[in-house]
Deep mutational scan, measured.
Amino acid sequence: WKITIYDQENFQGKRMEFTSSCPNVSERSFDNVRSLKVESGAWIGYEHTSFCGQQFILERGEYPRWDAWSGSNAYHIERLMSFRPICSA
């Protein structure tokens, strides 16, 4: 599993790669995730830290803005603060 997060939209700004769970992006000096690329595996992104709040399934691909992973939710969530890989047995 591999995911790359960015602190600006369209894959700009600070970037960081992960191959395992991140319970709080702010502990990695990110205020928020504004864009991301899922390089391999599937991940679950969460609205809040500690894997809480609205969940987003993140499959392999590029997500240049928050609405790319938020989709058409009843209330739009511009925040992604934690994530972890989906492990299959």
Rank of each mutant, 00 (worst) to 15 (best):
S20F: 05
Y75A: 15
N24H: 02
R84D: 04
L36N: 05
E62R: 07
F18R: 01
F56M: 07
A89F: 05
S35I: 00
P64C: 07
Q12P: 00
M81Q: 13
L58E: 03
E62P: 05
W43Q: 01
A74P: 15
F11N: 02
I44P: 02
S70F: 05
E59R: 15
E27H: 08
H48T: 04
V25M: 04
S35A: 02
N32A: 11
S50W: 06
G61V: 01
G45M: 11
N24A: 06
Q8T: 06
S70W: 06
P64L: 03
C22G: 00
F56W: 13
G71I: 10
R65M: 06
D7T: 08
V38S: 02
N10K: 09
N10H: 12
F56S: 12
D31P: 08
I44V: 11
F11K: 01
T49W: 04
W66I: 09
I57M: 10
Q55D: 13
D67K: 08
R79W: 05
K14D: 07
S50Y: 07
Y6A: 01
R34C: 06
Y75P: 15
G71L: 11
P64H: 09
A68T: 11
S70I: 09
M81S: 08
D31Y: 08
E9G: 03
P23R: 08
S88H: 13
P85I: 04
I44D: 00
K2T: 04
S70T: 14
K37Q: 08
L36S: 08
C22W: 03
E9N: 05
I5M: 04
C52E: 15
L80R: 03
L58I: 08
F56P: 00
G41Q: 03
Y63D: 01
F18C: 08
S21I: 05
Y63H: 05
V33P: 04
R79K: 13
G61Q: 00
G53P: 02
P64Q: 07
W43F: 05
S50N: 13
R79T: 15
F51N: 03
G41H: 03
V33E: 01
G45A: 12
S29M: 07
G45P: 03
M81H: 05
I86N: 15
F18P: 00
E39I: 12
L58Q: 00
R28W: 09
W1Y: 15
M16N: 05
H48Q: 12
S72I: 05
K14E: 08
A74M: 13
Q8C: 07
F11I: 01
D31E: 10
S50H: 15
T19S: 09
K2L: 11
C22N: 03
S82L: 01
V38R: 02
W69F: 14
R65G: 10
Q8A: 08
F56Q: 12
W66P: 14
W1T: 12
C22V: 14
P85Y: 02
N32G: 08
T19P: 01
I5F: 04
H76T: 10
R60I: 12
E17S: 13
W43P: 00
E9Q: 09
R65S: 14
S70Y: 06
E27D: 11
D67V: 12
E47D: 09
